[in-house]
Design a protein around this nucleic acid. Structure first.
Lengths: 137, 137
DNA sequence: TTCCATACTTACCTTTCCGTGCGTACTTAC
DNA sequence: GTAAGTACGCACGGAAAGGTAAGTATGGAA
């Protein structure tokens, strides 16, 4: 038995697989940040361009100030979010995606869009089906 | 403003954004399951084909029995994982991805692969700051 | 007879997550 | 003068995540 019997579709080598699946893979930390509950939404919300703090907070429904600030800091430390603060009297800070951030955000968005589009095919939509007028044939 | 909420799901654009970013979007639950720490790794590990429980456990480094069982149950309830149990004397259960599961897993894998490939481009401060902080009591 | 392997489940406990409320330094609006 | 907005930081407490260990049923190996 040498190589695999039914390998993954295409693209990246199986070597990468072994890395991520190993417990000490350093990428896991970044992956956790990116796939965190608010991390996903921040990346998607920032894809539209530059936004201010409270603007983002209104944009992302349900996020608290604490979580938004924390998520932005983590994503900034990872190099995905750029923070620009102006030393003016009412605080003015602008957040945007770095080139790296744009790349991950695109991947994240593809995943999120798939879930939104295919949500009606999932059994979860039956369990929590409380929607008034959204029933396709 | 465009107002098409019953159109074909062919092209997804900014309309979808508003749904996911709103607090009561039902897709958020599924998104959370898929992007959960172990959910991501289970989906990737199952992309190779069918695997048994302890086989998955050895494959995914660092996962506990409890978390693996729980994650598999959630993913099965969402319709991403298929579970087939044989009524034999030593329990024999096989896990695989459903067609839906294969689709998400691919999206998840693209994201995970990007992070692994581009990890070296990320700021070094992040890499060094990964340590289990132990606070003395 | 005891141990092990399988695929979990349950109980117990620690750790992390996350919302709420408060404070800041300053300005505009009422 | 009071309220609101801005962009957070800090402390508290409840909720959730997650690890460890033990139990369950059964047959085969030692």
């Amino acid at each position: 038995m040498e190589n695999r019997d039914n390998g993954p579709p295409a693209g990246l080598s199986d070597k990468l697989n072994g890395e991520l699946l190993s417990a000490d893979c350093p990428s896991r930390g970044v992956l956790k940040h990116v796939t965190s509950q608010w991390g996903v939404l921040v990346l998607i919300a920032l894809q539209g361009g530059t936004h201010r703090f409270s603007e983002l907070r209104r944009r992302i429904g349900g996020v608290s100030e604490r979580m938004l600030a924390q998520t932005l800091q983590v994503l900034e430390a990872d190099g995905f979010v750029a923070r620009r603060a102006y030393p003016v009297v009412p605080p003015h800070v602008e957040y945007s995606l770095t080139p790296l951030g744009e790349e991950v955000a695109e991947k994240v968005r593809v995943l999120a869009d798939w879930i939104e589009v295919n949500f009606h095919r999932l059994p979860a939509s039956r369990r929590a089906a409380q929607r008034p007028a959204r029933v396709p044939v």
